[in-house]
Nucleic acid binder design. Structure first.
Length: 563
RNA sequence: UGACCCAUGGUGUAACUGGUAACACGUCUGAUUUUGGUUCAGAAGAGUCCAGGUUCGAGCCCUGGUGGGUCAACCA
């Protein structure tokens, strides 16, 4: 909630909003705002792209403009239609629409070629016959100017002829390139006669083998912006040094007052998370994960399978903001964003993953009590459910310790605990198998302590989930098998959280009925995910070492308890 | 011995045309008919990279350092 004094203050704006509003008040581009989201279809979108998507579509929406979807498909060696479809699905899932404005840089290959010809005719581009190594060797260094190519002063006619023949497929890949003639002594390496066209003979996923030459990023991006009437071309910080070149091409092309403008913002980095497309592709190809949408992946579809909502992803992006500082964002902020959202939406259920039988010795046999539990304590409209309570219940194995460390608030010999919604029980005895493992816990209960009862306000430190053994045994066994027997050799338990959320398991798990639509659509919240064993995975800095976050968290918990 | 960009609590961001550092996450207490979650109450934690300068006054402006990032792909 905002304090009255805060309402008087103008909402703080990030530097991009300020730049846009300045352009608006300066009357640039006729007061028009038009952005674009320009993915290369060479991989799946990840959480980092979500940051860009929210900005591109968000700015358009905020200032009454439009945002195009444009596939930056200028390199056929890396791109594929599979990615095009996945990208579109993910953007939609996030809640944004480009309406009918779905474009491809490859749509502009003709116009781009024409523009290249114009540059040649104006003496601003030339065909270079040297090898990649030679050209790169002549680039100079950051402190020394580059060398002039021996082909730099070819005649316009020869350049025109050569370039045409390059596109007709007469020359081999790598044998010739088209370069812009700018300044080999520029302190900005990107201005040292950048390559703008190269010969590529592999078919393009959209244009087939129509073209034999393909424009480079720098020669395609700004021009595509220009063709589409983009006013603000928002991209990440590493393109900052490309801006002079972006502007140079726009200057050559400009025929009116309209001009697109590139503004850079900081990329999203997450702690413990691999974000590079290259490495993610590696994980998929090497079979370390089961696909781009593996719940362990930081991809948008991976997050989706992990139970994240579009709202929570958008909220996270809103929380981290846009600056020019290279930031590393804490995953805990992302997790906070889901919890915030899911706490409000997700129905609560009881679940026992590794069952441990508790027998309440002084509770009558054959009696079933109905315990009413709120589906969501934060949202009364979600109603309540009736859960059967009986003499024998299962609790989580982790919730009992025979020799508890200091500050262990769960069940232990002689210790009291509340079974949520039911009674306070006290552990009086344990039964063990031959291996010395605890197989049964015997408790007594205090009949006056039922929630709402006369002694209900008695203080106990812990409250546990439980499931009536009689009502839920089958489900638990199945869950147990699924999680701990059906695991792959690497030890990764790769399970889609939603598999657990089918109405059937929810029903048995919680001992009550849940609306199917709710059950399939609503993931559990973080804590419940942990109970079920797989809220999320944590990437150690090296992609080979994938560890379950749960393990890490349990370890942390134990360290805290043992301290 | 280059160009460009950046520098605010542990982390991410705020601070209107200079007015004396705010918010969120995280951490730590405590409460609760009690999921070690949530909710609620409270606490600790920076004097804004450094040094000068302008000014009555600087996180904001200027100068010079220091530290970090990006750039020398026929990738985007």
């Amino acid at each position: 909630m905002k304090e009255p004094e805060d309402i008087l203050k103008p909402d703080s704006q990030h530097f991009i909003e300020q730049a846009i509003e300045k352009d608006l008040s300066d009357g640039k581009n006729g007061g028009r705002i038009h952005t674009r989201f320009p993915p290369e279809p060479n991989g799946y979108l990840h959480i980092g792209h979500a940051k860009a998507i929210c900005l591109d579509f968000g700015m358009a929406k905020k200032y009454g403009g439009k945002c195009n979807l444009r596939f930056d498909d200028t390199n056929p060696t890396k791109e594929d239609v599979e990615y095009v479809d996945a990208i579109k699905e993910d953007i939609n899932w996030l809640g944004f629409t480009w309406e009918d404005r779905e474009f491809y840089a490859s749509d502009y290959f003709g116009r781009l070629l024409d523009f290249a010809v114009v540059l040649i005719k104006r003496g601003l581009a030339y065909v270079d016959d040297q090898s990649a190594e030679t050209i790169s060797g002549q680039k100079g260094t950051t402190t020394q100017p580059g060398l002039i190519s021996p082909f730099r002063n070819r005649s316009v006619e020869e350049n025109l002829d050569l370039f045409t023949r390059m596109n007709e497929g007469e020359f081999d890949e790598g044998s010739r390139v088209l370069r812009a003639k700018i300044d080999m002594a520029s302190p900005n390496m990107h201005m040292r006669d950048p390559i703008i066209y190269r010969i590529l003979k592999i078919p393009h996923h959209r244009t087939g083998s129509t073209w034999k030459v393909y424009p480079m990023y720098d020669f395609a991006h700004g021009q595509s912006d220009y063709f589409e009437g983009i006013t603000h071309s928002l991209c990440t910080l590493e393109f900052e040094v490309h801006r002079p070149l972006y502007d140079w091409f726009v200057d050559q092309l400009m025929e009116s007052d309209y001009r697109p403008r590139q503004i850079e913002f900081n990329r999203l980095n997450l702690t413990y998370t691999v974000m590079s497309k290259r490495k993610l592709l590696e994980l998929v190809k090497d079979g370390v994960v089961k696909g781009w949408d593996d719940p362990r992946m930081p991809t948008i579809c991976g997050l989706r399978r992990r139970g994240y909502t579009p709202e929570s992803v958008r909220r996270f992006v809103e929380l981290i903001g846009y600056t020019k500082v290279e930031a590393i964002n804490d995953v805990s902020l992302l997790e906070y964003a889901v919890r915030e959202d899911l706490n409000r939406k997700a129905p609560r259920v009881f679940g026992v993953l590794k069952p441990l039988k508790v027998i309440i010795t002084n509770y009558p046999e054959g009696v079933t009590e109905d315990v009413e539990l709120l589906n969501n304590p934060e949202d009364q409209t979600q109603g309540s459910r009736i859960v059967p309570f009986t003499r024998e219940v299962y609790i989580e194995q982790d919730d009992f310790l025979e020799n508890p460390p200091h500050k262990f608030f769960r069940l232990a010999p002689g210790q009291e605990v509340r079974l949520k919604g039911a009674y306070i029980v006290k552990c009086v005895d344990v039964k063990k198998n031959d291996a010395g493992e605890v197989t049964e816990v015997h408790c007594t209960y205090d009949p006056d302590t039922r929630s709402g009862g006369p002694q209900a306000d008695r203080k106990v430190k812990g409250t546990l989930h439980w499931v009536s053994a009689q009502h839920a045994a089958d489900a638990e066994v199945r869950l147990y098998d699924r999680l701990f027997s059906d695991e792959d050799p690497s030890g990764h338990k790769d399970i889609d959280p939603r598999e657990f959320l089918n109405p059937e398991s929810l029903t048995v798990l919680s001992g009550c009925k849940v609306e199917p639509s709710l059950a399939t659509a609503m993931p559990l919240d973080k804590f419940q995910f942990q109970r079920l064993g797989y809220f999320c995975v944590d990437y150690d800095s090296t992609p080979e070492k994938l560890v379950f976050n749960r393990t890490v968290q349990l370890k942390d918990t134990w360290q805290k308890i043992n301290r």
